[in-house]
Amino acid sequence: MPFLLIDFPSFSPIALQIGPFAIRWYALGYICGITIGWLYARALIKNDRLWSGSSPISLVQIDDFILWVTLGIIVGGRTGYVLFYNLPFFIEHPAAIFRLWEGGMSFHGGFLGCVVAVMWFARKHGISILSLGDITCGVAPIGIFLVRLTNFINGELWGRAADPSLPWAMIFPTGGDVPRHPSQLYEAGMEGLLLFIVLAVMIRRGALKRPGLILGSFILIYGLARIVGEHFREPDVQLGYLWGGLTMGMLLSIPMLIVGLVLIVLAVRRGAPKPAEAIR
């Protein structure tokens, strides 16, 4: 074994256990991500300086929306994983679709579930779909960061084989004796921390005054970050590489680049609404 090679630290998959009740790290990542994101969303809504006038979304509405977006993440994420990543298995074992504790969630499916939740909730309550999407995407990197960390803790979704001389190459318990990239940490840094910082700076500089700008920026930057991260991440064994070395994660991220760019252009051209329009 090369001198600088790092052994993967041994983590228990159980984060907290009280009697027969156990909370796994994966579930804890989602719980903390949604909770912290909700608190951050409330802070953004209360800061009138970030909006053209007052926020078009009330605190009561964002409190109600949390349940909607949570269901969107869970239902969309699981549906996406079933359809995009392991459909033949679930056709043969349909009952396994509901065993969420065994893992198996798709970001792209979860994102589409959030889109449905945003559109449905906004239409039901007569609020701006784009502004609600901005808030949702502005806080989303918090959850992405935490869930990617739990992927690392669980020793899953590890990276491709790395040069043994790479100082941070790791031997993962289920990855054989091959030193690998800790791609979960790469993704946590790019899709979570970096994306959060970029969006937070944009928000501080008035991006929420242009509905759809944060939404489009999130979609575009996440798509770019995911494509870069996929170059270091081992493809799912049941899928492997697709056409021309593409992975499913790359393929699903390509449309995000187009949609994100279109939303950014439209938001910039549309400009900021007048205060009276924002309050209405």
Score class of each variant (00 low, 15 high):
P2V: 07
F3V: 13
F3A: 13
L5Y: 00
I6R: 14
P9I: 04
F11D: 07
A15R: 08
Q17V: 08
G19V: 10
W25L: 09
L28Y: 05
L28A: 13
Y30Q: 04
Y30I: 09
I31D: 08
I34R: 07
Y40N: 05
A43E: 05
K46H: 12
S55C: 15
P56Q: 01
S58F: 04
L59D: 14
D63A: 10
D64G: 11
L67A: 15
V69M: 04
T70I: 15
G72Y: 06
I74C: 11
I74F: 14
G77I: 07
F84I: 04
L87T: 07
H93K: 11
A95I: 11
A96H: 08
A96P: 00
I97A: 08
L100W: 05
E102W: 02
S106I: 01
S106R: 01
F107K: 02
F107G: 08
F107Q: 03
G109Q: 02
F111Y: 15
L112P: 03
C114V: 12
V115A: 10
V116G: 07
A117D: 01
A122V: 03
R123G: 14
G126Q: 06
I135F: 09
T136V: 07
G138Y: 01
I142R: 05
G143R: 04
I144V: 15
V147L: 08
L149R: 05
L149N: 11
T150P: 13
T150K: 09
G159M: 10
R160H: 00
D163L: 02
W168Y: 13
I171L: 14
D177T: 12
Q184A: 08
E187P: 02
G189A: 13
G189H: 05
L193S: 10
L193P: 06
L195G: 01
V198Y: 09
V201M: 12
A207P: 04
L208S: 06
R210N: 12
L215Y: 09
S217P: 00
S217C: 01
S217K: 00
I219M: 06
L220Y: 09
G223Y: 01
G223V: 08
A225L: 10
E230A: 08
E230Q: 08
F232Y: 14
R233S: 05
R233A: 07
P235W: 00
P235C: 02
Q238C: 14
Q238R: 15
W243C: 00
G245P: 11
L246R: 03
M248K: 03
G249I: 05
M250K: 01
L251F: 11
L251V: 14
L251M: 12
L251T: 15
L252F: 03
S253R: 04
L257W: 07
I258C: 03
A267Q: 06
R269P: 09
R270C: 07
R270P: 04
R270W: 02
P275N: 12
A276H: 14
R280S: 13
